[in-house]
Simulated assay, not measured.
Amino acid sequence: MHIDEVKNNQFYQFPKWLLTEPYIELSHRAMLMYMFLWDRRGLSEKNGWYDEDGKVYIYFTNEQFIEILKCSEPAIIKSKKELTEIGLLDEVRQGINKPNRLYINGTKNSLVQDLKNFKHGTKNSLVQDLKNFKGINTNIINTNISNTTTNSAEKNVFDYYQRRIGSLDGFQYERLKDYIEIDGIEPELVKRAIDRAADNGKRNFSYINKILKNWAQNGIRTIAQQDEEQRSFADSKAKKPGTFERPEYGQGYDPELGF
Protein backbone atom coordinates (compact mmCIF):
# COMPACT_ATOMS: atom_id res chain seq x y z
CA MET A 1 0.00 0.00 0.00
CA HIS A 2 1.36 3.41 -1.01
CA ILE A 3 1.88 6.14 1.63
CA ASP A 4 -0.78 8.33 -0.03
CA GLU A 5 -3.29 5.50 0.34
CA VAL A 6 -2.48 5.20 4.03
CA LYS A 7 -2.91 8.95 4.56
CA ASN A 8 -6.22 9.09 2.71
CA ASN A 9 -7.81 6.00 4.24
CA GLN A 10 -10.34 6.54 6.98
CA PHE A 11 -12.00 3.79 8.99
CA TYR A 12 -15.18 3.18 10.92
CA GLN A 13 -14.96 1.97 14.50
CA PHE A 14 -16.76 -1.30 15.14
CA PRO A 15 -17.43 -1.98 18.86
CA LYS A 16 -16.03 -5.42 19.65
CA TRP A 17 -18.76 -6.15 22.18
CA LEU A 18 -21.29 -6.31 19.31
CA LEU A 19 -19.79 -9.74 18.61
CA THR A 20 -20.60 -11.03 22.10
CA GLU A 21 -23.85 -12.19 23.69
CA PRO A 22 -26.57 -11.00 23.41
CA TYR A 23 -25.62 -8.66 20.55
CA ILE A 24 -24.14 -11.41 18.37
CA GLU A 25 -27.73 -12.37 17.51
CA LEU A 26 -28.22 -9.06 15.65
CA SER A 27 -28.30 -9.17 11.87
CA HIS A 28 -25.22 -7.92 10.06
CA ARG A 29 -27.23 -4.99 8.72
CA ALA A 30 -28.26 -3.96 12.22
CA MET A 31 -24.63 -4.17 13.35
CA LEU A 32 -23.53 -1.97 10.45
CA MET A 33 -26.30 0.49 11.24
CA TYR A 34 -25.08 0.75 14.83
CA MET A 35 -21.50 1.19 13.58
CA PHE A 36 -22.55 4.16 11.40
CA LEU A 37 -24.45 5.70 14.32
CA TRP A 38 -21.47 5.10 16.60
CA ASP A 39 -19.23 6.91 14.13
CA ARG A 40 -21.64 9.85 13.91
CA ARG A 41 -21.30 10.71 17.63
CA GLY A 42 -18.32 12.98 16.98
CA LEU A 43 -20.34 15.11 14.57
CA SER A 44 -23.11 15.44 17.15
CA GLU A 45 -20.64 16.61 19.77
CA LYS A 46 -19.14 19.08 17.31
CA ASN A 47 -22.55 20.57 16.45
CA GLY A 48 -23.86 20.60 20.02
CA TRP A 49 -26.57 18.04 19.34
CA TYR A 50 -27.47 17.01 22.88
CA ASP A 51 -30.63 17.46 24.89
CA GLU A 52 -31.34 19.16 28.21
CA ASP A 53 -30.16 16.02 30.04
CA GLY A 54 -26.81 16.13 28.25
CA LYS A 55 -27.57 13.03 26.15
CA VAL A 56 -26.14 13.18 22.66
CA TYR A 57 -28.53 12.52 19.79
CA ILE A 58 -27.76 11.72 16.17
CA TYR A 59 -29.39 12.65 12.88
CA PHE A 60 -29.45 9.83 10.34
CA THR A 61 -32.57 9.55 8.17
CA ASN A 62 -33.99 6.37 6.66
CA GLU A 63 -33.14 7.75 3.21
CA GLN A 64 -29.48 8.09 4.20
CA PHE A 65 -29.42 4.54 5.59
CA ILE A 66 -31.01 3.29 2.34
CA GLU A 67 -28.26 4.96 0.32
CA ILE A 68 -25.33 3.79 2.44
CA LEU A 69 -26.61 0.26 3.18
CA LYS A 70 -28.09 -0.29 -0.30
CA CYS A 71 -31.37 -1.77 0.88
CA SER A 72 -35.09 -0.99 1.09
CA GLU A 73 -36.84 1.11 3.71
CA PRO A 74 -38.62 -1.93 5.24
CA ALA A 75 -35.16 -3.46 5.77
CA ILE A 76 -34.00 -0.25 7.50
CA ILE A 77 -37.07 -0.23 9.74
CA LYS A 78 -36.48 -3.90 10.62
CA SER A 79 -32.84 -3.20 11.56
CA LYS A 80 -33.85 -0.26 13.72
CA LYS A 81 -36.38 -2.48 15.45
CA GLU A 82 -33.64 -5.04 16.20
CA LEU A 83 -31.45 -2.37 17.81
CA THR A 84 -34.38 -0.94 19.75
CA GLU A 85 -35.53 -4.31 21.11
CA ILE A 86 -32.04 -5.18 22.31
CA GLY A 87 -31.68 -1.80 24.01
CA LEU A 88 -29.10 -0.14 21.76
CA LEU A 89 -31.29 2.46 20.08
CA ASP A 90 -33.98 4.95 21.06
CA GLU A 91 -35.74 6.93 18.34
CA VAL A 92 -37.59 10.12 19.24
CA ARG A 93 -39.96 11.77 16.79
CA GLN A 94 -39.83 15.56 16.53
CA GLY A 95 -42.83 16.27 14.36
CA ILE A 96 -43.65 16.97 10.73
CA ASN A 97 -40.71 17.81 8.43
CA LYS A 98 -38.20 17.30 11.22
CA PRO A 99 -35.79 14.35 11.33
CA ASN A 100 -36.09 11.94 14.22
CA ARG A 101 -33.50 12.08 16.97
CA LEU A 102 -31.57 8.86 17.39
CA TYR A 103 -30.01 8.01 20.76
CA ILE A 104 -27.60 5.09 20.89
CA ASN A 105 -26.98 3.10 24.05
CA GLY A 106 -24.03 0.98 25.02
CA THR A 107 -22.67 -1.00 27.95
CA LYS A 108 -20.50 0.00 30.88
CA ASN A 109 -17.77 -2.21 29.53
CA SER A 110 -17.87 -0.40 26.21
CA LEU A 111 -17.60 2.91 28.07
CA VAL A 112 -14.50 1.78 29.92
CA GLN A 113 -12.95 0.74 26.60
CA ASP A 114 -13.84 4.15 25.18
CA LEU A 115 -12.03 5.86 28.01
CA LYS A 116 -8.95 3.69 27.51
CA ASN A 117 -8.85 4.63 23.84
CA PHE A 118 -9.63 8.29 24.37
CA LYS A 119 -6.45 10.26 23.74
CA HIS A 120 -7.65 13.84 23.73
CA GLY A 121 -8.05 15.18 27.26
CA THR A 122 -6.65 14.97 30.76
CA LYS A 123 -6.87 12.23 33.32
CA ASN A 124 -9.22 14.39 35.40
CA SER A 125 -11.55 14.98 32.45
CA LEU A 126 -11.73 11.24 31.80
CA VAL A 127 -12.59 10.56 35.42
CA GLN A 128 -15.31 13.21 35.25
CA ASP A 129 -16.69 11.59 32.07
CA LEU A 130 -16.88 8.27 33.88
CA LYS A 131 -18.69 9.88 36.84
CA ASN A 132 -21.25 11.40 34.47
CA PHE A 133 -22.05 8.05 32.92
CA LYS A 134 -25.72 7.11 33.60
CA GLY A 135 -26.22 3.92 31.66
CA ILE A 136 -25.83 5.41 28.17
CA ASN A 137 -22.39 5.97 26.71
CA THR A 138 -23.42 8.53 24.11
CA ASN A 139 -22.14 11.24 26.46
CA ILE A 140 -18.62 10.05 25.62
CA ILE A 141 -17.66 11.19 22.15
CA ASN A 142 -14.79 8.99 20.98
CA THR A 143 -14.14 9.18 17.25
CA ASN A 144 -10.95 9.47 15.30
CA ILE A 145 -9.88 13.11 15.56
CA SER A 146 -9.45 13.26 11.77
CA ASN A 147 -13.17 12.66 11.42
CA THR A 148 -14.10 15.71 13.49
CA THR A 149 -11.40 18.18 12.58
CA THR A 150 -12.53 20.79 10.07
CA ASN A 151 -10.17 23.36 8.59
CA SER A 152 -11.27 26.88 7.72
CA ALA A 153 -11.58 26.16 3.98
CA GLU A 154 -13.90 23.21 4.64
CA LYS A 155 -15.95 25.18 7.16
CA ASN A 156 -16.35 27.89 4.54
CA VAL A 157 -17.79 25.28 2.15
CA PHE A 158 -20.23 23.97 4.76
CA ASP A 159 -21.39 27.47 5.65
CA TYR A 160 -21.73 28.29 1.95
CA TYR A 161 -23.88 25.20 1.39
CA GLN A 162 -26.25 26.22 4.18
CA ARG A 163 -26.54 29.76 2.82
CA ARG A 164 -27.27 28.70 -0.75
CA ILE A 165 -29.03 25.34 -0.34
CA GLY A 166 -30.27 24.84 3.22
CA SER A 167 -29.46 22.89 6.35
CA LEU A 168 -26.62 20.38 6.14
CA ASP A 169 -27.16 17.11 7.97
CA GLY A 170 -24.50 14.76 9.25
CA PHE A 171 -24.42 12.41 6.26
CA GLN A 172 -24.15 15.31 3.81
CA TYR A 173 -21.43 16.93 5.92
CA GLU A 174 -19.33 13.76 5.84
CA ARG A 175 -19.86 13.28 2.10
CA LEU A 176 -18.72 16.82 1.24
CA LYS A 177 -15.76 16.39 3.57
CA ASP A 178 -14.81 13.16 1.76
CA TYR A 179 -14.92 14.87 -1.63
CA ILE A 180 -12.44 17.45 -0.34
CA GLU A 181 -10.15 15.26 1.78
CA ILE A 182 -10.27 11.91 -0.02
CA ASP A 183 -11.13 12.74 -3.64
CA GLY A 184 -8.98 15.86 -3.53
CA ILE A 185 -11.58 18.25 -4.97
CA GLU A 186 -10.62 21.80 -4.03
CA PRO A 187 -13.13 23.66 -1.82
CA GLU A 188 -13.78 26.35 -4.43
CA LEU A 189 -14.84 23.69 -6.93
CA VAL A 190 -17.23 22.21 -4.38
CA LYS A 191 -18.73 25.69 -4.01
CA ARG A 192 -19.13 25.84 -7.78
CA ALA A 193 -21.19 22.64 -7.67
CA ILE A 194 -23.31 24.23 -4.94
CA ASP A 195 -23.78 27.34 -7.11
CA ARG A 196 -24.74 25.23 -10.11
CA ALA A 197 -27.44 23.48 -8.11
CA ALA A 198 -28.79 26.67 -6.53
CA ASP A 199 -28.72 28.67 -9.79
CA ASN A 200 -30.70 25.95 -11.56
CA GLY A 201 -33.28 25.65 -8.80
CA LYS A 202 -31.99 22.24 -7.72
CA ARG A 203 -31.66 22.93 -4.02
CA ASN A 204 -31.00 19.38 -2.91
CA PHE A 205 -27.91 17.43 -1.94
CA SER A 206 -28.54 14.64 -4.44
CA TYR A 207 -27.98 16.98 -7.39
CA ILE A 208 -24.75 18.36 -5.91
CA ASN A 209 -23.56 14.86 -5.04
CA LYS A 210 -24.02 13.71 -8.65
CA ILE A 211 -22.01 16.66 -9.98
CA LEU A 212 -19.15 16.07 -7.54
CA LYS A 213 -19.19 12.32 -8.10
CA ASN A 214 -18.97 12.86 -11.86
CA TRP A 215 -16.07 15.31 -11.47
CA ALA A 216 -14.20 12.95 -9.14
CA GLN A 217 -14.64 10.01 -11.53
CA ASN A 218 -13.36 12.12 -14.43
CA GLY A 219 -10.34 13.48 -12.58
CA ILE A 220 -11.68 17.04 -12.33
CA ARG A 221 -10.48 18.40 -9.02
CA THR A 222 -9.73 22.08 -9.56
CA ILE A 223 -11.47 25.17 -10.91
CA ALA A 224 -8.93 25.29 -13.75
CA GLN A 225 -9.67 21.70 -14.77
CA GLN A 226 -13.40 22.30 -14.73
CA ASP A 227 -13.01 25.52 -16.75
CA GLU A 228 -11.06 23.53 -19.34
CA GLU A 229 -13.76 20.85 -19.36
CA GLN A 230 -16.39 23.53 -20.01
CA ARG A 231 -14.34 25.04 -22.83
CA SER A 232 -13.90 21.63 -24.44
CA PHE A 233 -17.62 21.01 -24.21
CA ALA A 234 -18.41 24.43 -25.70
CA ASP A 235 -15.96 23.81 -28.56
CA SER A 236 -17.45 20.42 -29.33
CA LYS A 237 -20.96 21.89 -29.22
CA ALA A 238 -19.95 24.68 -31.59
CA LYS A 239 -18.79 22.11 -34.12
CA LYS A 240 -22.17 20.40 -33.94
CA PRO A 241 -24.91 23.10 -34.25
CA GLY A 242 -28.27 22.24 -32.80
CA THR A 243 -26.94 19.82 -30.22
CA PHE A 244 -27.45 19.89 -26.49
CA GLU A 245 -27.47 22.98 -24.28
CA ARG A 246 -26.13 23.30 -20.77
CA PRO A 247 -28.74 24.09 -18.10
CA GLU A 248 -26.91 27.37 -17.42
CA TYR A 249 -27.83 28.58 -20.91
CA GLY A 250 -30.97 26.63 -21.67
CA GLN A 251 -32.90 23.46 -21.02
CA GLY A 252 -31.59 20.05 -22.01
CA TYR A 253 -28.72 17.69 -21.46
CA ASP A 254 -26.46 18.29 -18.49
CA PRO A 255 -23.03 16.77 -19.22
CA GLU A 256 -22.11 16.84 -15.54
CA LEU A 257 -25.03 14.65 -14.53
CA GLY A 258 -25.32 12.59 -17.68
CA PHE A 259 -28.97 13.45 -18.32
Rank of each mutant, 00 (worst) to 15 (best):
N62S: 06
N9D: 03
Q226C: 14
S44W: 05
N151A: 03
Q226Y: 13
G258D: 02
F259K: 06
E25M: 10
R203A: 00
I77P: 02
G48K: 13
L83R: 12
K177Y: 14
Y57S: 08
V127I: 09
G252H: 01
R41C: 06
W38Q: 09
L189Y: 08
S152I: 13
Y253T: 00
V127F: 02
I86A: 03
G48Q: 10
N124W: 06
W49D: 14
R164H: 11
A216S: 15
Q13P: 02
K46M: 13
R163A: 12
V92N: 02
I76P: 00
L43F: 10
F65L: 13
F14G: 00
Y34P: 02
T243I: 00
G42A: 06
T148Y: 12
G106A: 11
A197Y: 04
E174I: 06
N9Q: 08
Y253V: 01
K119Q: 12
I68V: 15
I24N: 15
S152G: 00
A216Y: 08
H28K: 14
E248Q: 09
N62R: 14
P247G: 04
M1G: 08
R93V: 09
S152F: 02
N151T: 03
N117W: 07
R163G: 05
A224E: 15
K202L: 05
E228N: 12
G106S: 15
G42W: 07
N209I: 04
V56N: 06
E256N: 08
S27A: 03
K108V: 01
G87A: 12
S236E: 10
E154D: 14
L83Y: 11
D195R: 04
L26K: 07
V127S: 01
R164I: 01
F233Q: 06
Q10N: 04
K240W: 02
E52N: 04
L69F: 08
D183P: 04
G121C: 03
L18Y: 06
R231W: 07
K16D: 14
K240I: 09
E186Y: 02
G170E: 11
I208R: 04
Q172M: 15
F233T: 01
K55N: 10
D183V: 12
I68S: 08
K155Y: 12
V6W: 04
K108W: 07
S79F: 07
I140C: 07
S206Y: 11
I185V: 09
L88F: 01
F11Y: 07
H2K: 13
E67K: 15
E228F: 03
Y161F: 15
E256R: 05
N147H: 15
G184D: 08
I223F: 06
D178Q: 14
F133W: 15
I220G: 02
V6F: 07
Y179L: 14
F205L: 11
N100W: 05
